[in-house]
């Protein structure tokens, strides 16, 4: 991080991959390596337009270039989506707290993603892959609106080429070519689709708030302890370092104390799903 924590370092956009109609993965090369851990986020600046927070989706063991998967949804992402390789960007980070991987050791890890929420979970998966022996088993349950909205589709459908992983996908609404599951993501968390042991497991959830809410309720129902359910809280962030006040969540700042919180820390707070 530069000596002024509000100022980003220059970066170049090296490549853009169209994932879905409104989601692209941007390969960004910072001027200097940016070392981050899975779950930490960065603030990406489109010069002259503004800055927005994103969690990298690439492996945390690579710091020279970072992949960031971004849905076109607001002012900054609209501009980002119009950029071509070679464009000037700026990047600030790492920000926030990483996933507490040491707490996942010896556990079954259930990863539940919804839509573009799979992006930060992909960085987590890459971190888990580096140390597969430390985790009992890895499950991925992913839901997208339609087959065309599945991000990293080839990799997801191939289970990242790892036979030991248990990956199940669902879509809210099938299309003519889809023969897989149909329905919201909680359907593939049901015991007939998920042979995991919640007593020896942690669940990591990232997706739209409504999906996280119902996934959490389902996970609790399955027997996951609140402290073993990890949620990514999406809040309006400006500074990313716990000073500007925007992302307050009860006694926490989502940017500084999160963005990932175990459910027990936030379950008594109001309006966490809004």
């Amino acid at each position: 991080m530069s000596c002024n924590p509000y100022m980003p370092m220059p970066a170049k956009l090296e490549n853009v991959v169209q994932e879905t109609a409104n989601i692209k993965t941007f390969l960004v090369r910072p001027e200097k390596p940016l070392v981050f851990k899975a779950g930490q986020f960065i603030a990406l600046t489109v010069p002259g337009i503004g800055e927005a927070p994103f969690t990298p989706s690439s492996s945390p063991s690579i710091s020279e270039k970072i992949e960031i998967t971004i849905m076109r949804v607001g002012r900054v992402t609209e501009k980002l989506h119009a950029l071509k390789p070679g464009a000037d960007l700026a990047i600030r980070g790492p920000l926030g707290q990483p996933y507490p991987l040491e707490k996942y050791h010896g556990q079954e890890v259930l990863i539940v993603g919804g839509g573009v929420g799979l992006a930060p979970l992909r960085a987590l998966l890459f971190a888990l892959f580096e140390d597969m022996g430390k985790y009992k088993k890895i499950f991925v349950r992913y839901g997208a609106k339609t087959p065309a909205d599945i991000v990293y589709r080839q990799a997801v459908e191939a289970g990242w080429g790892r036979k030991e992983m248990d990956v199940v996908i669902t879509v809210d609404k099938r299309d003519a070519g889809w023969s897989g599951n149909e329905g919201v993501v909680t359907k593939i968390l049901a015991p007939d689709k998920l042979k995991c042991n919640p007593k020896e497991g942690v669940a990591v959830v990232c997706g739209p708030p409504i999906m996280m809410k119902f996934a959490t309720l389902e996970l609790l129902h399955l027997g996951f302890a609140p402290e073993n359910i990890y949620l990514s809280m999406e809040k309006n962030m400006s500074c990313g370092i716990g000073k500007c006040g925007h992302c307050r969540l009860g006694p926490f700042y989502a940017c500084k104390d999160g963005p990932v919180f175990s459910f027990d820390r936030i379950k008594n707070l109001q309006k966490i799903w809004d």
């Binding site: 607001g74 900054v76 809040k235 309006n236 809004d274």
Partner: peptide
């Protein structure tokens, strides 16, 4: 109004 609004439009304090 938009102090806490996220890019997607959700606002925890509407």
């Amino acid at each position: 109004k938009n102090f806490a609004t996220v890019a997607g439009g959700a606002n925890p304090r509407r």
